[in-house]
Simulated scan of single mutants.
Amino acid sequence: MRPAWSILLFTTLSGTAQGLLLALAVASWLMPLDTGFALMAIGVAEVLLLGGLLASFFHLGQKARAWRAAAMWRTSWMSREVIVLPLLMGGGALWWLGLYLGASPLALQALSAAVVVVTLALWVCTAMIYACLRFLQEWAHPLTVINFTLLGMSSGSVLLCALASGMGQTELLAWLQPWVLASTLLAWFLRRLALRRNARLSPMSSLQSATGIHQPQLVQKSMGMSSGSFNTREFFHGATAHTVRRMPWVFQLLAFALPLLLLALLGTQSLLVWLGAVLLQFVGLLAERWVFFAQARHPQNLYYQTVS
């Protein structure tokens, strides 16, 4: 599949915002949080969600008809995502307002719990857009939902640590560090597991089934059309085989190995170290999302994508 930058940015930004909100909510249940810090952290998450939402609009063909994307909510995971994302933004705004107005602890816990539920629901909706496509074996697996969730938890908690470090929230920073370590290592392990699984997959379709020519020694010399089309542009990434082989190592290095190494070698109290980890992980997760799309081998490429 061709990775669209709008979707790469949307899934990365919104996933980080979800992970930030989840970590902040859980922390608020276990320790008293500084109100000013919590307001700032929720505001950052809202900005990320808004940025992801704006990025997703660039993926629409008819932007004026965007509201119709929610019409098929009974059967479409994309429609459900379109509904749940504004719900999360609204829930985060209500949580922010409750903190700002000094609502009771019970009300704040209820608001944060609602945000956690909607956060988890959004991860499921986003991941199931891809996991429900059974003809794309690389996506049609529970690991797709698990990896979307864990990658968001990791990146969101790293960003929350950077915010805590910058505002001197030492108690929260100490509590978050095991969360960062556990979520990042688990996300790395399960993403590698998905890569290994996908590498062992056998294609369900063949050149013979794609063309309807059932000859054992069939060789394709042209792409099946006289010129380029939607099929040749939208279902193939266009990168070389060398790039596709190297990109998994690139994203593992940037999203997991280097941030963890940076924190281990330079300590976890410095704001610059956390900002470096945030930047490395953001670039790495963009690369990870590129790999996620590029490695999905659409059956139609058997017919359309070989060019003489």
Rank of each mutant, 00 (worst) to 15 (best):
Ser155Thr: 05
Pro178Ala: 12
Leu173Met: 11
Ala174Cys: 00
Ala174Asp: 09
His141Thr: 15
Leu176Gly: 06
Glu138Val: 05
Ala140Pro: 04
Thr149Gly: 11
Leu163Asn: 08
Asn147Asp: 13
Val180Ala: 03
Gly166Cys: 06
Leu159Ile: 03
Leu181His: 07
Met167Arg: 15
Val180Ile: 15
Gln177His: 11
Leu159Phe: 06
Trp179Ile: 14
Leu150Gly: 00
Ser154Thr: 01
Ala164Val: 08
Leu136Ser: 03
Leu150Thr: 00
Cys161Arg: 07
Ala174Glu: 13
Leu151His: 06
Trp175Tyr: 13
Trp139Thr: 13
Ser157Glu: 06
Thr149Tyr: 00
Leu176Ile: 08
Thr170Trp: 06
Ser155Trp: 00
Pro142Leu: 12
Phe148Ala: 01
Phe135Trp: 12
Trp179Met: 10
Gly152Met: 06
Trp179Thr: 12
Ala162Asn: 01
Leu150Ser: 00
Gln137Asn: 07
Leu159Cys: 06
Phe148Met: 05
Leu150Gln: 01
Phe135Glu: 13
Gly156Ala: 10
Trp179Ala: 10
Gln137Trp: 05
Ala174Gly: 04
Gln137His: 06
Thr144His: 04
Leu160Val: 08
Ala164Tyr: 05
Asn147Cys: 02
Gly152Ser: 06
Ala174Arg: 14
Glu171Ala: 15
Ala164Trp: 07
Ala140Met: 04
Gln169Trp: 07
Pro178His: 08
Trp139Ser: 09
Gln169His: 07
Thr170Asp: 12
Trp139Phe: 10
Leu160Phe: 09
Ser154Cys: 03
Ser165Trp: 01
Ala164Ser: 14
Trp139Gly: 10
Gln169Tyr: 07
Ile146Ala: 13
Trp175Phe: 14
Trp139Asp: 11
Leu163Pro: 08
Ser157Arg: 01
Leu181Gly: 00
Leu133Pro: 01
Glu138Gln: 14
Gly152Pro: 02
Asn147His: 00
Phe135Cys: 05
Cys161Ser: 15
Leu151Lys: 07
Leu133Lys: 12
Thr170Leu: 12
Met153Arg: 08
Val158Cys: 05
Leu173Gly: 06
Ser155Pro: 01
Asn147Ile: 03
Met153Thr: 06
Glu171Lys: 11
Asn147Lys: 00
Met167Leu: 14
Gln137Arg: 13
Ala174His: 10
Ser157Pro: 03
Gln169Asn: 08
Ser155Gln: 10
Phe148Ile: 06
Trp175Gly: 03
Thr144Asp: 05
Thr170Lys: 07
